[in-house]
Amino acid sequence: MKNQGKKNVRDEQMKSLEEIFEAKIARDEKIEPKDWMPEKYRKTHIRQISQHAHSEIVGMLPEGNWITRAPSLRRKVALLAKVQDEAGHGLYLYSACETLGISREELYDQLHSGKAKYSSIFNYPTLTWADIGAIGWLVDGAAIINQVPLCSTSFGPYARAMVRVCKEESFHQRQGYEIMMTLCNGTQEQKDMAQDALDRWWWPALMMLGPTDDESTHTEQSMKWKLKRKTNDELRQQFIDQTVPQADILGLKVPDEDLKYNNETGHYDFGEIDWEEFWQVVKGHGMCNKERISARKNAWDNGEWVRDAAVAYADKQAEKDVKEAV
């Protein structure tokens, strides 16, 4: 009986803490790492921020594939800078995630063991140089649409990281579009290459914005916590509305027979998305899932001696400093 009483008091306290917390978010106040937060808020944020970080890191792989084969020095320095930015974005986000009490090692381990997810788009291969253009234009374009609302998300470290990411991301999209533009102004063969890249990346880019609202399990809670500020379907519509006219300027055809501007709604109507494909890729059966994870694991395992050497060097320097001080 006594224990029951104690439990009730605890539950009461918890409830009032949660009410204070919810009210803070409703007032658009930020939550900082040491503030009290419901366990579910912490867990959801660890999941989303780490997925985001993993996506940046794995996202380097499909593009890294073309660094040595970039068609000019100008393209090569731009692509190198872009891939380096993705690494930086991954690092901002891992740091933000660690403020929630999970270690970098645990985060890496979740990625390498396949426990954590990353954006399914990076499990598609980059077959031609035009894919680098299409990725910058479409994948970074969709990422920007996803990320801009996150700059005002409720968790302070995540919001601050997103402000930096968004500032840097716009060059990524522009360099991609410029690649597409150059190809489309080139020979027929080059234009065909650009069209082929659009054909292959269009649908995966639409899927990138997540399952439809009625299928999305996390949307409702995430909207309440302002971890999400627009639903997946709203973001997808925005992406389509702004990207179709860009394809028109390139003179390329979006691979959707049902795509049509709707004068009544002021939006484009579009065809059915193949969600079966999306879930297959999410479940690990995409074209490059195994390759991506094994590349990450190899990079981590083969870099172990470098990390160890750096620690050994730091130890030696520290010892030397102590001796000199004596």
Binding site: A310, Y313, A318
Partner: peptide, 23 residues
């Protein structure tokens, strides 16, 4: 500006240059 991991202060400084001041 943020945080990062590094084995010692000198490496932390170099990494900070690459992670936080690329522009």
């Amino acid at each position: 500006f943020g945080s990062l991991h590094a084995p010692d202060a000198d490496m932390a400084l170099k990494n900070a240059r690459d992670v936080y001041t690329r522009r």
